[in-house]
């Protein structure tokens, strides 16, 4: 009970800090970076669900971000559908394509999911680029800020809170999924698909529904991104971007939800901080990834990752000093 209280206190303190940020940080650039962190956190969380929980490898998440972005932006900005509907439609549209793609995999084999997602993300990018009538091609188009009953989220601080609320809702939902019967089924088929089928789990069906659910959250993140940056163009939804998003989930630690947020934060903030050394940015990120994979392949907060090792080390130190 005591341990739980401690966790709760840390959580409350963290929430207070997060809520107070816009009062302390008035620099709009900083707030924009933080919004980006939160949007990428949602994407990394959805990747974590696919890669970390159900154990499939997805190289094309950016395509689903793009589907959510374009769907929500076109509905809201071009067709003037109420914001809340177009925003949710962004998620559902992405989930729909997740389902189509997942069906293909279900009738072939999920072993090919990685290749199929790479192909799919290239197809999507080409469509975004060339379907002028709908997407305005590579010029992209301006999108409007989120709007609820006449209230427009047009200041950096209001956008910060908007992103925060969406991230919190997504986090809670994904956490609930991972703690539910479904979440345990995903983990079971990740660890041993044969034993999972002996337990009565339809392995392919559960891989499929995990993929669809994750695609919904990716789409929501995409919709959020479209209305946050107020401009969308196909250049954002490339395979490079997919790999970066995958890196976030791996860096933070697969299977750890707070890890995904940490991973997104690091891989969003480091490039911003190292803007001065612009030419070396990729080098810095590359070295970071290599070092991490060499010394902590489980990521920062994953099971057996850096954090676990540090905790184990401290415990060992304190117990040996007690013995002295």
């Amino acid at each position: 009970m005591k341990k739980l209280d401690k966790k709760f206190v840390i959580f409350i303190a963290f929430m207070v800090v997060v809520l107070l940020v816009p009062f302390v940080v008035t620099n709009s650039y900083m707030l924009r970076v933080l919004c980006n962190v939160m949007i990428y956190s949602i994407i990394a969380l959805s990747i974590n669900l696919i890669v970390g929980y159900s154990g499939q490898l997805d190289f094309g998440r950016a395509a689903f971000v793009g589907l959510g972005s374009y769907c929500s932006a076109i509905l809201f900005t071009t067709l003037h559908v109420p914001f809340i509907l177009s925003f949710l439609a962004g998620g559902l549209f992405s989930a729909l394509f997740g389902a189509l793609l997942g069906m293909l995999c279900r009738y072939s084999s999920f072993d090919y999911l990685t290749l199929i997602t790479i192909g799919f993300s290239e197809i999507c990018r080409k469509i975004f680029q060339n379907w002028y009538a709908v997407t305005n091609g590579s010029f992209g188009f301006r999108t409007s800020r989120p709007e609820f009953f006449g209230f427009v989220f047009d200041t950096p601080a209001s956008m910060y809170y908007f992103c925060l609320v969406i991230l919190a809702l997504c986090y809670i939902a994904i956490r609930r999924i991972t703690k539910s019967k479904y979440g345990r089924a995903y983990m079971a088929l990740r660890d041993d698909s044969i034993a999972a089928s002996y337990a009565g789990i339809d392995v392919k069906k559960f891989k499929l529904n995990c993929f669809v659910i994750a695609s919904f959250f990716t789409g929501i993140a995409g919709a959020l991104m479209a209305h946050f940056t107020t401009f969308i163009s196909p250049t954002v939804y490339t395979t490079d971007e997919s790999l970066l998003e995958l890196q976030m989930a791996i860096l933070g630690g697969l299977g750890s939800l707070p890890g995904s947020i940490l991973g997104a934060a690091i891989l969003t903030i480091v490039p911003e901080v190292s803007r001065a050394a612009y030419e070396y940015r990729l080098l810095i990120m590359g070295v970071m990834m290599v070092v991490l994979m060499l010394f902590a392949p489980k990521g920062l907060l994953g099971r057996g990752g850096v954090w676990d090792k540090v905790v184990a080390l401290i415990k060992k130190k304190s117990s040996t000093s007690k013995n002295k």
Partner: peptide
């Protein structure tokens, strides 16, 4: 055969 418990649960 070989038990196949879910090791991480």
């Amino acid at each position: 055969e070989g038990r196949r418990v879910f090791p991480r649960q």
